[in-house]
């Protein structure tokens, strides 16, 4: 198997920063690291398994209802994850609220099925799905790290800013908790990536 399949999505063709897919949920669920991790993991599972199943079925899928079939497969995994979270991680599923269900609309998943899984064997498709999900999760975790640290002074819900800082006048940045700051942080990450990866720059 080509190593590029799992190397590229992590940086060179990262779904969030290069393809600019899945931005909506990246803004919404990155207030806390815990939520971002679970969301990232959920997306990884969904991209991985829906790519796998789409690839297994690829020779039988009627071309005219291709997209609908993909949607059904993706929706199946999303609902399964939503149900499991509600049953076993109730607090988290509450804080992720509608965004778990909205994984269905995450363009990364349909994009990878359409662009990769339908033309490749199951195993590479699965790896491609997982790698793209991981590329997405990575960005979510980086963004949520800064948002939680600067916005709430915590990491994974544990206080990391010493009390003495607050006493001497340090304040949490409330703007970090709001979605616009996530957009700005992602913008900064895109900026950093583009200054390293010169071929992405428009002339």
């Amino acid at each position: 198997m080509d190593k590029e399949i799992y190397r590229k999505p992590l940086f060179l063709t990262n779904p969030v920063t290069v393809l600019v897919l899945g931005i909506c949920s990246a803004l919404a669920v990155t207030v806390q690291m815990k939520g971002a991790c679970i969301m990232g993991l959920s997306v990884m599972i969904v991209t991985g398994f829906s790519s796998l199943f789409a690839s297994l079925l690829r020779n039988g899928i009627p071309n005219r209802i291709r997209i609908i079939v993909q949607l059904v497969i993706v929706a199946l995994f999303v609902i399964l994850i939503d149900q499991f979270l509600k049953a076993y991680m109730y607090d988290l599923s509450k804080s992720l609220s509608v965004y778990v269900g909205l994984i269905i609309t995450n363009c990364i998943i349909m994009g990878r099925i359409e662009a990769f899984a339908l033309g490749n064997k199951p195993w590479p498709s699965f790896v491609d799905g997982i790698a793209n999900g991981f590329g997405y999760a990575m960005i979510l975790i980086v963004v949520s790290f800064f948002r939680e640290l600067l916005g709430s002074g915590t990491l994974f819900g544990i206080n990391v800013i010493p009390q003495s800082w607050y006493e001497s006048g340090y304040m949490n940045n409330g703007l970090m908790i709001l979605p616009p700051m996530a957009l700005i942080l992602i913008g900064i990450i895109v900026w950093v990536q583009r200054s390293i990866q010169k071929d992405l720059q428009e002339k």
Binding site: N59, G60, P62, R64, V69, V72, L76, Q83
Partner: peptide
């Protein structure tokens, strides 16, 4: 795989299978 009959049967089977899995879970 492009005939109407195939498409309809495929869609029906897929949906029924998926629905069964979801209902069970």
């Amino acid at each position: 795989t492009n005939s109407n009959t195939y498409t309809v049967i495929y869609a029906t089977v897929l949906v029924v299978v998926v629905a069964a899995v979801l209902a069970f879970v």
